[in-house]
Design a protein around this nucleic acid. Sequence first.
DNA 1: AGCACGCCGACT
DNA 2: GTCGGCGTGCTC
Length: 800
Amino acid sequence: MNVYAKIIVDVPSGGTDHPFDYHLPDALAQTASIGMRALVPFGQRKLTGFIVDIVSETNLEKVKSVAELLDITPVLNEELLALGAWMSKETICFQITAFQAMIPAAMRAKAVKKIAVVESERSDLPMNIQAFFGQAGERSWADVPGDARLLRDIRSAVEQRQITERYELKDRAKHRTAKAVTVPSDVEEKPATKKQHETFALISDHYGKTEVAIQTLIHQLSLSRAVINTLVKNGFLQEKEIVIDRNPYTSAEGDGSEEKATLTVGQSRVLAQLEETIDQPQGSTMLLHGVTGSGKTEIYLQAIDRVLKQGKEAIVLVPEISLTPQMVERFKRRFGANVAVLHSALSVGERFDEWKKIQEQRVQVAVGARSAVFAPFTNLGLVVIDEEHESTYKQEEHPRYHAREIAIWRSERHCCPVLLGSATPSMESYARAAKGVYHLLSLPDRINQQPLPAIETVDMRAEMREGNRSVFSTTLLDKLRDRTEKGEQAVLFLNRRGFSTFVMCRNCGYVGMCPHCEISLTFHRRDSQLKCHYCGHEERVYERCPSCESTHIRFFGTGTQRVEEELQQLLPEARIIRMDNDTTKRKGAHERLLKQFGNGDAEILLGTQMIAKGLDFPNITLAGVLAADTLLHLPDFRAQERTFQLLTQVSGRAGRAEKAGEVIIQSYTPEHYAIQHAQTHDYLSFFKKELGQRKQAGYPPYYFLTLITFAHATYATAMKAGTHAAKLLRARLGDDAVILGPTPSPIARIKDRYRCQCMIKYRDEPEITDVLHELFSYYQKELQQDQRFITIDRDPNMFM
DNA sequence: AGCACGCCGACT
DNA sequence: GTCGGCGTGCTC
C-alpha cells in the first residue's frame, strides 16, 4: 500500500502556503508520523517541512518522495498543529511561520547545499572553479558568486561528476555530549599503581557499572584527569560519549525544598476560588488584580501545586525572564528539577535542552517568556500569565500573536483555566473582567499589612523656574542623600523609550537623522558612532554641525550613563549601580548586579525599564521616577495606560518589608490623570477615566484595531496601494467599521522603503478575518515583485 | 523564497 | 548568431 505525507514546506510565500504531497518510501512509512519534520525535494532544491497528515492516496499523477525524516519523535503534536493552523488564520501569516514559531530555534533547520571537489578530478577543473575552491575541498553553494560563467561551469562539472552536491542541515539541534566512563564487566587484573587503584575503587564503589561523565568524577570525587586517562588506556575503564544537559541556570539553583508560605485571609479566599476553577474541567479565564506586594506569586505557586497533584502540567509566562530573575528563582526553589526555564538569554542549545525536558515529560512546569506558551505539554492544567498587561506578550514580528490569546485557545482545548495576574491590568482584560467574560479575583492589600508607599509628585517646571537645571529635583536629591546616610536603598527609574540620546545642534537646531529611515540617529558613546536603530546605518559623530558648521553640537536626551555621572557628582559618597542595556549585555551580568544590590553593595540602583518590575528587596525605601512625561507624550493611544502602569510598578518597589516606602515622581505635567491616579494608587478611577477616553476616541477595548502597512521604494506606489486597499475595505466591511488612512507611517521610511498605513477600527465584523486574507493574498500576488509589501498587524501594540 | 524558463537588446 | 539582462510562474 502506498503511503503519502502531506507536508507544509519551509517557504513562507503565498503560493506555497498549503500542504504538498510526498510519497513515503516503505522504510520511512514505518516511523513517519504527523508533526515530524522531513527533508523533501522541492523543485531543484531540498527543503525542510512539517508533516501535517499521512494519507493513503493522492490526486496527483506524479509525486516525489520524502528524502529523510528529521525527527524520531514529532516536534509538534496534534494540538500544536491545530493551533498553528488557527494562528495562521487569525494573525494572517503563513502556516510554516506559525509552526516555526512553536519550536525552539535550534530545530528551525534549513537544508544548505554544499558542493565538494572530487579530489582525483581537481586538476582537470576549469581555473575559475579551482580559484573558487582554493585550498578547500568543500564550500557552500551560497558562497558561489553570481557569476554566470562560473555557475555554468559548476553545473557542467557536476554533470561530469567532477563536483558532488550534498545537503547539510544548518543549525541542527545538537545534544551536548560529554566523555564518560564505565567499569567493564570483565576486569580481572589490578591497576599497576596505588593512585590508579584508589581511583578505580572509588569509581566502581560510587557508580558500579553505570556510566559517569569524567567531568563529574573530577568535580565530585576530586579525581585526576590523567589517572582516569591511564585507566582508560589500560582497559580498566571504558570510555564513551553520553548525552548530557547543559545546565545554564546556575545562579538560580533550587532544590524544591521551599515550603509553602502561610496565606493571608485575602490570599486564601482567592486561592480557594482558583482551586475550585482548577477542579472544573472547562476552559476559563481569570484575572487576578492584586496590588504590588500582595503576594500574587505565592498564589501562583500554590495553584500550580494543586495542578501538579492532579498529574497535570502548568505553564507560567513572565514578561521578559531576564528581567524577573527573582521570580524564576522562586519557582526553582519551590519545584526544583521539575521546572524547565525558557530563558531569553539562553543560548540556542540551552533553550533546546529545556524544551526537550518538556517534550520528554521530564518536567511538569515551564516558566518562560512569550514563546513558552507553546510548551509541548499534553495534559495542561493551568496557564499563568504574570504581569499580563505587558506589551512583550505580543510578538512584533510574524506570527504577530498575543500570548494571552494563545493561552486561552489552549485552555479551551485542555479544559483548564488561564490565570492573568497584574497590579495594573490592561484595559482590555479589565474591561472583559468587568463584563464577566473573565472571572475577576482581587487582592487589594499587601501581605505585610504595610500601606502602599506615599507618592509625591514634583513639578519640574517649578524646579526649572527656580533655576534648577539638573535632572534631579531638590526634593529627590534630599531624599536620596537621606537614604544614603541611613544606609537604606533607593531605585531610580529613567525611561529611555522615545527619548534616547540624539545629536542636536544648539545653534541651528539640526538633528542627526538616518538617511534611510527618517528617524533620529542614536549616539553610542562606546565607539563614538551615530547609529540608526531600524536599519543599522552608522556614521561617525560630528565635531561640527554638518548644516551650519557650528561647534555647539551636543547630545540630547538623558542616558543612564549621564545621569549616573551627574548623580555621582551631586552625591559623591553614594554607591550607585547602573543597570541598562550597556551594563547588562554580558551573560549573567543582570543577575550579578542585582545580587550586588541585594547584598547592600550600593545604595542606589539606577536603571531603565528593566528595574521597574519584579524587584523585591526589603531595604528599598525610596523609588524615584526621573521623567514621568517621556512615556506620556508618545504618539500612541496606550501612552497614558503605559505611564500609569509604569508609575505603579516602580512605586511597588519601595517599602515591601517592614520599613515604609516613599516614592517621588518628577514630571512636567503632574496634573495629568495618569500621574494623579498613580499617585493615589487608584487603579479603578484610572480605568474608568481611561475607558471614557477610549470610548470617545474609538479605541480598544471599545473597538478592535487592525493596522495595515504598505511599504515600497517609492512613496507614490505605497500610497496608491493604501488608497486602493482602503477603498476595498470600505466596500467589504460593514458601516460601523472605520477605515483611516492611508497616511504616512510615524516612521515614514525604513531601509529606503516608504511606508504608509491604514487603520481599521471595528466592533463586530464576523467577516474581517476573511477580508484580511483576501487583501493580503491580493497584494502578495499583485505587488510581490517589489519585495514584501504589505504587513497586517491585528491588535497592534506599536504604530511604527 | 529560489530557481528555471523565456523573451528581448547588445556584442564577439 | 550567442550572452546575459530581468520579468513570470511553479514548486508535490
